[in-house]
Computed example of a mutant assay.
Amino acid sequence: MKLTTVKVDNEELAAILFGQKVILIRDINEIAGANWSENILSILQNGQFSQINSWYKRVGNKEIIEMNRLVLESVTFAPLYRHPEKIWGVGMNYIDKAIELSGKPPEEEPVIFMKPNSSLIGPEDDILLPYQSTQITAEAELAIIIGKTCKNVEEADVPGVVAGFTTSLDMTAKDIHAKNPRYIQRAKSFDTFFSFGPYLTTIDEVKDVRRISVETKLNGEVYHSNTVSNMMYSPWWIVSFFSRIMTLHPGDVIMTGTPGSVLISDGDVVESLVEGIGKLRNYSCK
């Protein structure tokens, strides 16, 4: 199942992707006699995610055919949701990228950082280039969406606490970070420096996460590409690692690292392509 959020009459409403169309949760509630939230974050926080997924797999495909469906090309996507409790990122997680940047073997533990909610945007939104920096980079990443409150989770048990995956773009003020590695948090925290969506893809839709490819594109050209199998820290290991630091809650987002970044300038189009998960596109402007 793929969940998404679309804009309808100035509202941001949760929906399910069905082929080349989307069906609002609002319409599903009427047909299924349910009372599920119309906001994806609330769906996750209220424990409704597994209910909707079970309905979709059990009877959804048959009933959806009879529902009012919006043509995919006609909808405007919003961010998957607003105001997640936590947005975390992992730096230099692909082996060759880490060696390229540091010139030495990978560290025993990952570099991590946070993104503020004010940095969050969605598909097709503008990345605002701040005046404080002249070198802004964008990085495509596979992102993990937490589905259940959890703490100290064993790596083997992580799939049971994850709702699914999405595409993301992580922006950085490269010149600020280059002045001093300790400035990484400031370099990552400007408004519009985190984009995610348009789809939350459930983990049961992904046969083998290690085979997923991640691409960073700039103005239609692929600049970097790699597969999850080449990560130093696997997605399940990353969730386990974070859960040993803090309690994770439904809707928390964890970016898993990038195959490579691109410098973006005014008017550029940057994309994150994650195989089987989706394509995310944003525009940069001053």
Rank of each mutant, 00 (worst) to 15 (best):
P79K: 15
C150L: 07
S54G: 01
V161F: 11
P105A: 13
Q135C: 10
S54F: 04
A178N: 09
Q135M: 12
K174N: 05
K179R: 09
A140R: 12
F49T: 05
I99Y: 06
F77D: 03
I87S: 04
I112Y: 14
I146R: 01
T134F: 02
K151V: 05
P79Q: 01
L72N: 07
Y183V: 00
S74W: 03
N68A: 08
R182M: 07
L142V: 08
R182K: 10
Q132W: 10
I144F: 00
E124G: 05
Y131N: 12
L72R: 10
N61P: 02
D175S: 05
S189W: 03
F113S: 12
T172V: 11
I121S: 05
L70D: 06
E66S: 15
K174G: 01
A98K: 00
L169F: 03
I176D: 00
E108G: 08
D125W: 07
K86S: 13
T172M: 09
G160V: 00
M114K: 11
P181T: 05
P105F: 07
D157R: 13
K57H: 12
L101F: 11
S50H: 10
G89Q: 05
E63S: 10
M67V: 02
W88N: 09
E155I: 13
E139R: 09
L72V: 02
E73T: 12
P79W: 00
V158H: 02
K148I: 06
G122L: 02
I146P: 05
V162R: 03
P116E: 10
I64C: 05
P159R: 01
L120N: 12
A178M: 05
A78L: 00
S189H: 02
P159I: 03
H177P: 00
I64K: 08
A140S: 15
V162Y: 00
K148S: 14
M171L: 14
H177I: 03
I145A: 11
G89K: 00
H177G: 04
S54A: 13
T134I: 08
F49Q: 02
G103A: 12
I87K: 01
N93R: 00
I87A: 02
L80K: 02
K179I: 03
A178E: 11
A163F: 07
K179E: 13
V153D: 01
T167Q: 04
S102E: 13
V90S: 06
L72E: 12
N61L: 10
E109G: 04
G164K: 07
N180V: 01
G89E: 02
I112C: 14
V75E: 09
S119C: 09
S102F: 15
V162T: 07
N93F: 00
E154N: 14
P123V: 03
P79A: 12
P79L: 05
K188G: 02
M114G: 08
L101V: 14
K86R: 13
S54Y: 07
T137R: 14
A78C: 11
Y131E: 15
E108W: 06
P84H: 01
E73M: 06
K179W: 03
Y183M: 07
A140Q: 04
A143F: 01
D157C: 07
S118N: 12
I99R: 14
A140K: 10
E139P: 06
E107G: 08
Q185R: 04
D170N: 11
F113H: 08
I87D: 01
K115E: 04
